[in-house]
Simulated assay, not measured.
Amino acid sequence: MNPKRITVYDIAERIGCSHATVSMALRNHPEISEKRREQVRKVAEEMGYAPDPHLAALAAYRRINTPTEIRSSIAWINHWKQPEQLRKHREFDLYWQGAAQAAKRLGYNLEEIRWSPDYSAKRFEQILITRGIRGVLIPPHTTLPDWGDFDWSKFSVVRFGLSVSSPDSHLVTADQLRAVLMAVKKMAEYGYQRIGFVVPADSDRKLGGGFVGGFSSAGKSFNLPVIPPLLTEEQVYSERPEKARQLLSQWLKKNKPDALLTTLPEIPAMLRQLKYRIPEDIAVAGTAVDVPVDAGIDQHSEAIGRIAVETLVAQINLNERGEPPDPYRVLVESRWRDGKSLPPRKQK
């Protein structure tokens, strides 16, 4: 005979409280005191309590099939010096779109909240609390934000990518190393052998080295000729475009690539200024949708936004706040985009 399953009613009877209190305590609800939560957890463990998976599945089914009401907002913190520029990046706007759709499905409203330079950390923190914000998304930033003495322990937090190194929260990003491996393999299958890579060295370091690491691994894996990547610092392209164009020209003449993979939106225009035709003289693929060519890597940005919100809402429901003891990364697979900028080569 199967032993009787311990329920929240049994725990409530042992402690002398309501079953609702037990249920909320087991979900780490902030309305239940820490002392009571600890007591409930201890008694539940002693009694051998385990959630009923059939009831959990039924509850999940009901949530999916019941229209959700907006409960509160999730904050998308914009600490850019020019905040209007953030979502002009197509990739970041797709993060927003995926996050907004997921938030609505889960009963939340995604709200962009701009951190003005005039706000102290404590003032901005109080703004979030006043608005009833419990969960925070941190999108990519071009410069490292100064969070000051902002108290992250009051909020559930998820970061997008590695451009922002703190707080040390869970994060969701593209698997850039595997994306570059996939892209170089596709380019080789299309008949390109001398494949070059143009990426700012400082940008790659800030993002964890996945781009250059993936390119190096791809060359060895697919037995391609060794072409060293062009690793110019990012500010050269924005502040000294003439110098950047000169370095690109020298690199092209020395290495003679037949195809190019790049992270930089400036590269296609620079190639045309140097009288290279795309794709007749050199085929070009981008590592993201912000590179103005139609072939390359699709980092599945909407999915990254959706998964970030799902991760954040799970934390909110478990009342997990601040920097977790064991932060993890969710790496989302990218996809290949065919396009006229990198067509399959005709066999000679």
Rank of each mutant, 00 (worst) to 15 (best):
V291P: 03
Q82K: 14
Y49G: 00
Y9G: 01
R14I: 05
L231M: 13
G196N: 06
P292C: 10
A283K: 08
R14K: 15
R90Q: 10
P167Y: 09
S301F: 09
H19N: 02
N78K: 15
F160M: 14
S334C: 07
H141I: 07
I278G: 05
C17T: 15
R37F: 04
W115I: 03
I138G: 02
V8E: 00
S18R: 02
L331W: 06
W96C: 09
Q250F: 03
R272T: 15
G322S: 06
L261N: 06
E112Q: 14
S73D: 08
I267E: 08
K88L: 10
Y95V: 13
E34R: 12
A288R: 04
L318G: 09
Y328S: 15
D326N: 06
V184T: 12
R245P: 01
F150S: 00
E46L: 02
S33C: 05
N109P: 00
V309P: 01
K4Q: 08
A218T: 05
L312E: 02
K348C: 02
G322Q: 04
A269D: 07
S120P: 03
I297G: 00
V289Y: 05
F124L: 13
R335F: 02
Q246E: 14
A100M: 12
R277A: 11
R335G: 07
Y119R: 08
T263A: 13
L94A: 15
N28Q: 08
V291G: 09
G208M: 12
L231K: 08
P51S: 00
Q97D: 07
R27V: 00
Y119G: 01
E84T: 14
Q176S: 11
A285I: 11
D93Q: 14
D204T: 08
V8M: 00
R321A: 07
G214N: 09
L137I: 15
D146T: 10
A259N: 04
N78P: 11
K42I: 05
P265V: 03
T311M: 10
A288W: 04
Y276L: 14
G296K: 07
L230N: 07
Q246T: 11
A179G: 12
M187N: 07
L162H: 06
V291E: 03
S72G: 10
S217Q: 15
L128P: 02
E34V: 10
A44Q: 01
T142R: 07
D338H: 12
A179I: 03
D258T: 13
L331K: 03
S238T: 10
L224S: 06
D168F: 05
P279M: 15
S301H: 08
R245C: 03
G214I: 13
G208E: 11
